[in-house]
């Protein structure tokens, strides 16, 4: 896994500083800070309700932070929201597209919204790369879960974004589809995209991410390369108490975030 991909002196693609997000006075993200460099895949790990999606929502401009700074390629998310959105590709946790539109029409709509002109033939050619060329006439709901995820990722990357935000992109997928999506994520990185993804899967984090951060109750607990995190926390009594043998990333995760089941 290559991690050091930033050009010397170039600004981070994403800089999150002291981010605080609150809903109706209840703080769900509290003082979170991290950076993502160009061409880097960064994983945000946390149990349900930890604050992962709220962090992403703030970066996407869907919620206004109560505090903190969010810079995408040096642009302030709050000051220049539309310019920032043009730099982002987003796959939401549950994407939904207009039920009345075919896959081809959805692709042309979102291409247009990002300033990409696509003819019907170009849509067909592009869809071939994600294995959906034969499904162009179908509606979104008629696709399988894996196909829906592939379409959502295709739409998110239709304008070749600087930073791709993926909210639990492989949730609910079978192993084949999951591996396929990992390959696609690797390809996107090799094309110059930076990626921030949230996941529950430690396997995914280790397989795909250059660096990961563990978040819980809105607070960033630790951050680093997966191997670094294991080394850093391998002697932590909380980690040792849940480990069966040599500590793994999952042991570190459960040790730091607790064993209780979250809703």
């Amino acid at each position: 896994m290559t991690s050091e991909v930033n050009e010397p002196g170039s600004p981070p693609v994403l800089e999150v500083s002291q981010l605080r997000v609150a809903y109706d006075g209840r703080t769900v993200v509290d003082g979170v800070s991290f950076r993502i460099q160009r061409g880097e895949i960064f994983g945000l790990l946390g149990p349900n309700g930890a604050g992962k999606t709220s962090t992403l929502s703030a970066i996407e401009g869907l919620v206004r932070p109560a505090w903190g700074d969010l810079l995408v390629d040096g642009l302030d998310v709050e000051q220049q929201p539309l310019a920032v959105k043009a730099l982002l590709g987003v796959q939401l946790q549950s994407s939904s597209f207009q039920a009345e539109l075919s896959i081809q029409e959805i692709a042309r709509l979102y291409a247009g919204l990002y300033g990409v002109k696509l003819s019907k033939d170009q849509v067909r050619d592009s869809m071939r790369t994600v294995g959906l060329a034969d499904e162009l006439g179908k509606k979104f709901k008629q696709l399988s879960g894996g196909q829906q995820q592939r379409l959502a990722l295709f739409i998110a990357t239709i304008h070749n974004p600087l930073l791709l935000l993926l909210d639990e992109p492989t949730a609910g997928l079978d192993p084949q589809s999951r591996r396929g999506l990992w390959r696609r994520i690797e390809e996107l990185r090799s094309e110059g995209n930076s990626i921030l993804l949230t996941t529950h899967s430690m396997e995914e984090a280790q397989a795909v991410c250059d660096r990961v951060a563990i978040i819980d109750h809105g607070i960033l607990l630790t951050e680093g390369r997966p191997s670094e995190l294991i080394n850093k926390h391998k002697d932590d009594p909380r980690v040792l108490s849940v480990a069966h043998g040599a500590p793994t990333l999952e042991d570190v995760f459960i040790g730091l975030t607790g064993s209780e089941i979250r809703d």
Partner: peptide, 24 residues
Amino acid sequence: MTNTGVNTTRPPLGLALRSLLRSD
């Protein structure tokens, strides 16, 4: 803009509006 190979320009509003009108 400092990146290479990725799109960093703000898309034209006319194309966006036409795409929205067409899909709606």
